[in-house]
Simulated assay, not measured.
Amino acid sequence: MYNNLFLTVTNETLKQYTKNTFLNKFLNKFDFDEILWSLTTKVISIILISILFFIITESGRKIINHLFKKYQYKLNESNSDNKIDNSKIMIQRRNKTIYTLTQNAFHYLVIFFWLYSILSIIGIPVGTLIAGAGIFSLAIGLGAQGFVGDIVSGFFILFEHQIDVGEHVIINSTNGIVDAIGLRTTQIRSSNGTLNFIPNRNITTISNLSRGNISTLVNIRIMPDSPIKEIEDIMNQVNEQKKEPMPM
């Protein structure tokens, strides 16, 4: 009698999810209200943290644009006299290069902290996961070799001041104007408008056509009895007529 009473009371305290008693006992081990509350809290936290990082991203971009455009405006004002100054031109190109690099670095930094925050909210210990992943960490390391190679190569390209945005270069076999220099890739705009993305680790040869004077060999056929002095005067006159100022 007592056993039957105990079973009756126990069964009444269980939530009846199904008609199967064993399945009901298994499901009653979980607090679905707590699970739903935790899930809702995490989803709301992820949405709020995403909105926060979106605001940080937009604010950071506006600040970077304002600072560099303000400095670029001052450089343009200093060149308003239309006099060619190679040092000022180099400073303008360097400013554009640092601008694109800063934007690139800020973008990667925000993405890193956003992902780290999301994983932390979910409850994944990022540091412990990376440290104890074993083969998984090794696979990530091997896959990141190219990424690290791009960053290292890009650092030396910038540190050695090999190219700047706006310069005419030949990288490997790609001929064009430097459109942007990033942590991973360098963008070259060809004469036909094509935008070429070159991973920094694949850059083996850089020919910068915007640094210093460029010599051009022109073959002129003349008769043996032609007046050399007159020909030299004509060549000098044509050079003065065709000579163009250095582009800004």
Rank of each mutant, 00 (worst) to 15 (best):
I89R: 09
I89D: 02
M90I: 10
M90L: 04
I91G: 00
Q92P: 00
Q92F: 04
Q92R: 11
R93I: 00
R93S: 04
R93F: 01
R94V: 02
N95C: 08
N95T: 12
N95P: 01
K96T: 05
K96P: 01
K96Q: 09
K96D: 08
K96Y: 04
T97L: 05
T97Y: 03
T97V: 00
T97C: 00
T97F: 02
I98A: 07
I98C: 02
I98Y: 10
I98S: 04
Y99C: 01
Y99V: 03
T100P: 05
T100G: 02
T100D: 12
L101A: 12
T102N: 08
T102E: 08
T102M: 07
T102R: 08
Q103T: 06
Q103K: 14
Q103D: 08
N104G: 01
N104P: 05
A105Q: 10
F106V: 01
F106Y: 10
F106I: 05
F106S: 07
H107R: 12
H107T: 15
H107S: 14
Y108H: 14
Y108L: 06
Y108Q: 11
L109S: 13
V110S: 13
I111Q: 09
F112Y: 12
F112G: 08
F112V: 10
F112A: 12
F113M: 10
W114S: 15
W114P: 06
W114R: 14
W114F: 14
W114I: 13
L115V: 15
Y116I: 15
S117G: 12
I118F: 11
I118E: 13
L119C: 13
L119P: 08
L119R: 15
S120W: 14
S120C: 10
I121E: 13
I121T: 14
I121P: 09
I121W: 10
I121S: 09
I122N: 10
I122R: 12
I124P: 01
I124Y: 13
I124C: 09
P125K: 14
V126Y: 13
V126W: 10
V126G: 06
V126C: 14
V126Q: 07
G127P: 00
G127W: 11
G127M: 13
T128A: 13
L129K: 07
L129F: 07
I130H: 04
I130L: 14
A131W: 06
A131V: 06
A133R: 03
A133I: 02
A133P: 04
A133F: 11
G134F: 00
G134W: 04
I135Q: 09
F136R: 01
F136A: 11
S137A: 09
L138V: 11
A139G: 03
A139H: 05
A139N: 08
I140Y: 07
G141A: 04
G141V: 03
L142F: 07
L142I: 05
G143M: 01
G143R: 04
G143C: 00
G143D: 02
G143Y: 02
